[in-house]
Design a protein around this nucleic acid. Sequence first.
DNA 1: CTTCAGGTACGACTTGAATCGTACCTGAAG
DNA 2: CTTCAGGTACGATTCAAGTCGTACCTGAAG
Lengths: 111, 111
Amino acid sequence: MTGKNLAGPEADALDLGAVFRALADEHRRSVLTQLAADRGDNERGCNSFDLPISKQTQTHHFRVLREAGLIDEIDYGNRKGVRLRRADIEMRFPGLLALLEAEPPGDTDPR
Amino acid sequence: MTGKNLAGPEADALDLGAVFRALADEHRRSVLTQLAADRGDNERGCNSFDLPISKQTQTHHFRVLREAGLIDEIDYGNRKGVRLRRADIEMRFPGLLALLEAEPPGDTDPR
DNA sequence: CTTCAGGTACGACTTGAATCGTACCTGAAG
DNA sequence: CTTCAGGTACGATTCAAGTCGTACCTGAAG
């Protein structure tokens, strides 16, 4: 039942460039905004984000977010959980999550 | 002598997605970090950033930064000035510039 | 006037990223 | 066991972005 945590960078190793690149994508930013909105930082299923893209692409986006150090991915084998690394992000980039929370949620930015 | 200011978005219209996309590039982030380091927000020449890229590419990057609303470009005809839009950025995205200032300057991130 | 440095316009090339199709794996429920 | 939904792996495609070569513009200095 207890899944294993997939590897991401240490809190000290978080790179601002990688974070900005991760947040440059609309879908990934949507995921992080939704995660940041929950002050309890509960683990969420990957299905709960209602992304209008295929599951292969979702896998790709969650991987990018994890490799940027923004989320933890917990692997249960046939499903996966996601949790925001709020403490690490706040320590390394204080105020970053506040910027995301302040954004209007339905802002489908017309690239 | 007084140049004309090239058009950028209004302060209210600054888009977080465009800002993240602009800051996702190492060279543009370097420019903004250097600008943010000067608390006096003095106008700087485009040549003063020591970017290891051709001038055509520099033109491209400064345009992206301006269209994201992060800098003003002042056109003098045969040269150009750049100024950080600190007040607008701070109003719309408080704390963003602090994140850049906190970064180690010589961080040549190995993409 | 000519020269020259700074900057732009346009096009071409190249790389990376987002997306999806197909196939396969994993664990839970029949 | 089989079935099924969630997720991954791999490859292919498409598109945006970074880069530069060539040509041209602009204003200042001879």
